Amino acid sequence: MSHLTVDIVRSPEDLDAVRDLCRAYRLLLAERIPDRPEILANYYAEEDYEALLAVLPEKHARPDGEIFLARLNGQIVGCGMTHRVGPETCEIKRVFTAPDARGHGAAQAIFMAAMDQARADGYSVMVLDTMVRLVEAIALYEKLGFTAWEPFYDLPEGFEDLIRFYGIRL
């Protein structure tokens, strides 16, 4: 039987694992949008993305956010993170499960842990953005009760057909 846990990242080694998972997430996005290189260039340009990964602990620091790490049978398999985007609203970002661990509930467990932490931190809303081509992710969001939501940032011109916004009242 599989044993799945979700923990809050505290060690440098765990943070390095999160960064590796985020890089794998970027590669997945690149695979899903080969015909839209401007999306990768705008949101995930390699140099800018590496700079973002370097400051993850600051960007998702307490008390406004958190970084979560999923382990399946002791092996690191997934991550996700939250941060404040409004007085009572947090955003969940970069939820990703390694391909060989999919189907074990890691992403759902990350969402549940993040939602519990967000409630405990006083947030009343959680939002996210996603690409329409991430159909598996969208199915999970909807299963968890997320619904279509108003954009919480301005999209670059020409991206409206590819990005969707979701939210849930906690």
Rank of each mutant, 00 (worst) to 15 (best):
M1I: 09
T5N: 06
T5P: 05
V6N: 02
D7C: 12
D14T: 04
V18P: 09
C22Q: 11
R23S: 08
R23I: 03
A24E: 15
L27Q: 14
I33Y: 15
I33P: 00
P34Y: 03
D35P: 01
D35S: 08
R36H: 12
E38N: 11
I39W: 05
N42G: 00
Y43P: 02
Y43I: 04
E46C: 00
E47H: 15
D48C: 00
D48N: 13
A51E: 15
A54F: 05
E66N: 15
L69P: 13
L72C: 11
V77W: 13
V77R: 09
G80P: 13
T82P: 09
V85F: 01
G86N: 06
R94Y: 11
V95A: 09
V95D: 07
T97D: 08
A98G: 10
D100P: 04
H104M: 05
A107T: 04
M112G: 00
M112E: 14
A114G: 14
M115R: 14
M115S: 08
M115K: 13
M115W: 02
Q117I: 01
A120H: 10
G122A: 10
Y123M: 09
Y123T: 12
Y123D: 12
V125S: 07
M131K: 00
L134G: 01
E136W: 02
L140V: 02
Y141L: 08
E142M: 05
L144S: 05
F146R: 08
F146M: 12
T147C: 05
T147H: 02
A148S: 10
P156L: 04
P156F: 02
F159T: 07
E160Y: 02
D161N: 03
F165G: 05
Y166S: 01
G167C: 05
I168D: 02
L170H: 09
